[in-house]
Structures are given as structure tokens and as C-alpha cells.
Design a protein around this nucleic acid. Structure first.
Lengths: 251, 251
DNA sequence: CCATGTGAATTGATTCACAGCG
DNA sequence: CGCTGTGAATCAATTCACATGG
């Protein structure tokens, strides 16, 4: 759930399913924890539990990477950490820029898990001239004017957008023009990008709305069987003759 | 991609597919923008473009809600805003607590899109006694000791966890015990919760890792056809006799 | 005549269940 | 003998394509 258009049906060498790719970081986290506790091997059952998935799915996922386990025994933790890291491209260093150093941008800059695992905050960029030069998380904020130069100088290919919604598309266009080909978007907007550029989005409001949907269902079920009040799934209410249309919503 | 275990195969009245639910907020956002520009009606084609999906998918999604369009014309914007809002449960007010007021928690508290659309930050909670009483985003931070009382007094059913990973499960347990049944988790941990509790997670590091995977593929493809260096998908390298196993990774 | 709504076809992901290897 | 690796079966999501109704 997130890629903006993009999906390169093109030359995808030996397709690992997208759903699997999305779970690899999860496995990697669980494996890293095991590694720190010096656990030498782990079974699909144990690792699956630690990652919060079921073991059949995990084994199927790993089967796309190759045969890295030992039957009757399980997986070698260190070996698997390496293989997954390599598959994800984490054996190399990824310089990242964060554009938009408001509350969220600053929080991202300070976020520890960011720095770990191959990602390095190469620069912070903001449109506010008053911020220029101020250090955030030990890194001086630079002005948007220099965006292209910053991207170029640092060889950045991954950008994080944490600007207000109104500025996001424009920032995105400049990032892409400057050579960025992967974007993590925190602004609540749909970004349009040319083919070959990947966009993933994180939207707090959307996540909450999905939770609210399920929450509402739960609340309704409790009272199920009771009076016919609160029709939960108003399928086919087809704009009928009844005047139940409040027309305007709380913005 | 996110629900922690949970999926209530139970009494799901008239199943709207999960993938559809996840897109409804997207449609709602696009519709709200149209509404603000006083656009009266919109076709599936136009709305789909604004939401970044294709029109067939959009029409199929809407078909699960009912027949809300007019053939030959399109959809009434206001009417659809209302129907989707209602379906998502946004016509009611959802008090939310945020636990863990560090950089990220503070950013969330300040995040505007949070407050809009039915969600209200009812309380901020942190374990640090030094923070207690300090206002963040105009709301005084309260101490974890009072968590249960706060949940209860405010009738909170949705909790946001923005604590360090180590504290997350414990906070989660307390939230659940106090009556919270939906959790948005920003801590990089797998939370385990009883049936009937929904968990969605947002993990910055995971999103970046997914981008890195695709980014790596792109870099590899450029050089495709060249020397046989950089084998991209090492399928079946089967831990073979060759000694290509660095064994340890940069943590 | 145009755009919705939807069965049917397709593609993708998950789960099952067990053969086969260490 | 236990656990991996994987075909086959199932389930979910997407896309196609067109009949249908305003």
C-alpha cells in the first residue's frame, strides 16, 4: 500500500513479490534482535512469531530469496541477516535529504532508527530563510534555493518530503529533476511523478481513519440484534426518496 | 499492510474489502478538495486521477458502499463526502490519546490533519515526570501513572503509541486493559494484542528500506548487459561451497 | 450517448499440506 | 524425526469489458 504509480513492470530481474519485499524489513528487525542476543539459529516458527506473521508465509517469502535454511534445524541468524540486508540494498550507504523542517521534519531528523541501517541524513532543507544555518539534530538546515546543488553534491537518490501539503508537489518536482528517484512522502497529497520514480506515502490521518472504520464496526456489533437503529452497512440505500442527506460535513 | 493480527472474521456485517477501506480516506481527501472549490459533481475518471488510482478500481470500491452515482453524469461531491465520512465513522467524534511525547509525539500533537476530520487529541501522556504539566500544542502533558484514569474519563478508544520501542508493549498492554481497542503504533516493535483489538503500524525505517530495495534494482538495471558483476537476484545461491559469506553485518 | 455499476477473467497473495533433506 | 521448501488449492484484489439506465 503506497507506491504512487510506478511499479516498473519493466526488466524486474527475478521478481520478488511486493508483499514479500514489504515484510523483509520486519524479518530483518527480528533477526537483528536475535543476533544481539547471540542466538545462533532460529526456526521459521520462532522467527515468524517474533515478526508477527505466520510461519508458512515466512518460509514462502524466504523461498524467493533462495534456500538459506537447513532442514530439521532452521536458519542461521547471522547468515540470514546478511542475505536480507543485501537483498534490501542495506549493505550500501544511502544518503537521504529531508525537505521541510517543521515539527515532523525535525522529529524525523532526530529519529534514531533513521540513521541506523544504511541510511544517513545527508542534509536538511527548508524554505524558511530564518531556519537557514540553524542546526537540527546536529545538522545545519539549508535553504531550498540550494536544493539541486545539495542533491548533486551528496549523490542523494532518496528524498523525504515533510512539507505542508501545498508545497509538496513543487518540492517533489524539484527533487525528481535533480535526480532523486525514490520519495517518502509525509505530506497529505497525491504526488505525481514520472515513470521510474518510486513514491511511498505515510499519512497519519489516513491510518486513523482506517482505525475509526473498524472501531465503528465494533461499537455497532456490541449493540447488534437490538433496535434497528444505526444501520451499519447501508448498502443500496441508493439516494432513495427519504431525505436523510445532511449535505455538508464538518470540514 | 499493517493490521497486527486482528481481523475479525467475525460478524463483519456486509464485508467491505480491506483494500477498499484503505482507499476511502484517499477518496475523501480528494472529494473534500473538490468540495472546497465548490465543484458540484465529478466523474469516476476525474476523481480517480485526483486520488491517484484508476477509475475501474474506484467504481468497484464505491459499488461496495452502494449506488451513489448517476449514470451518464458522475457523482455528487457533497453527497459522496457525506456517505464516505459516515462509512468511515467520521461523523462522530473520536477522542485520541498520544503516549510518548518526545520529538515524534510532539510533532503528532501539533499535526493539523490530526485534529480535523473527527479526531481530537484528548490527552498527551509521558513517562517523564519532568514533562508533566508542560503544555505541548496547547495541551498539558500528563504522567503515565494516570493513564487508566485518563482513558476512562475521556472515553478514549483509540491510542497512539510514540514511545521508544522498549516501552511500547507495556504501554500497549495498559491501553488495552484500560479499554482502548484501536492502536496506531509508531514504535518499531511488533505489538501483541488480544483478539478484537486493531493495531496499525507506521514505521519510517521500514518504508525507507522498501525504497532502498527498489532503488538498488534501478541502479543495477542501468548497468545491465554490462559485465556480469553485481548479480542482482542471487536466487539459488544455496549457501554453496564458495566462501562468499561475510557473516557479520553493520548493526 | 455517456459514465456508472458489475459479472467474468485475471492477476496476486496467502494458506494448506506434505515430500524430501539434513 | 523435525523443519524446510514448495507445488497445489484457496482466497483476495485488480482489471476488463459491456449491459444498463439516466
Amino acid at each position: 500500500m503506497a507506491t504512487g504509480r510506478t511499479h516498473r513492470p519493466a526488466t524486474r530481474s527475478r521478481g520478488i513479490p511486493e508483499a514479500t519485499v514489504a515484510r523483509l524489513p520486519l524479518y530483518l528487525r527480528a533477526l537483528t534482535a536475535l543476533s544481539e542476543r547471540s542466538v545462533p539459529t532460529v526456526s521459521s516458527e520462532e522467527l515468524a512469531a517474533a515478526a508477527g506473521v505466520n510461519s508458512a508465509k515466512l518460509r514462502k517469502d524466504f523461498s524467493y530469496l533462495g534456500s538459506y535454511g537447513t532442514r530439521g534445524v532452521g536458519y542461521d541468524v547471522e547468515y540470514l541477516v546478511y542475505q536480507i540486508s543485501r537483498e534490501l540494498g542495506l549493505t550500501q550507504d544511502w544518503p537521504v535529504v529531508i525537505v521541510g523542517i517543521g515539527n515532523l521534519g525535525a522529529a524525523l531528523a532526530n529519529y534514531g532508527g533513521f540513521a541506523s541501517r544504511g541510511f544517513r541524513v545527508a542534509a536538511l532543507i527548508d524554505a524558511d530563510p530564518a531556519m537557514a544555518g540553524k542546526p537540527v539534530a546536529g545538522i545545519p538546515v539549508q535553504h531550498t534555493d540550494d536544493l539541486e546543488k545539495i542533491i548533486d553534491d551528496n549523490g542523494v537518490s532518496i528524498g523525504v518530503i515533510a512539507t505542508p501539503a501545498g508545497a509538496a508537489q513543487q518540492v517533489c518536482d524539484r527533487l525528481v529533476a535533480a535526480g532523486v528517484t525514490s520519495i517518502l512522502n509525509f505530506a497529505p497529497t497525491v504526488l505525481s511523478v514520472p515513470d521510474g520514480v518510486d513514491v511511498r506515502k505515510v499519512d497519519l490521518s489516513i491510518e486513523l481513519q482506517i482505525l475509526a472504520f473498524h472501531e465503528q464496526r465494533k461499537a455497532g456489533e456490541e449493540a447488534a440484534g437490538e433496535s434497528a437503529a444505526v444501520p451499519l452497512a447501508p448498502k443500496d440505500s441508493g439516494k432513495g426518496p427519504d431525505g436523510d442527506v445532511p449535505a455538508v460535513m464538518p470540514a
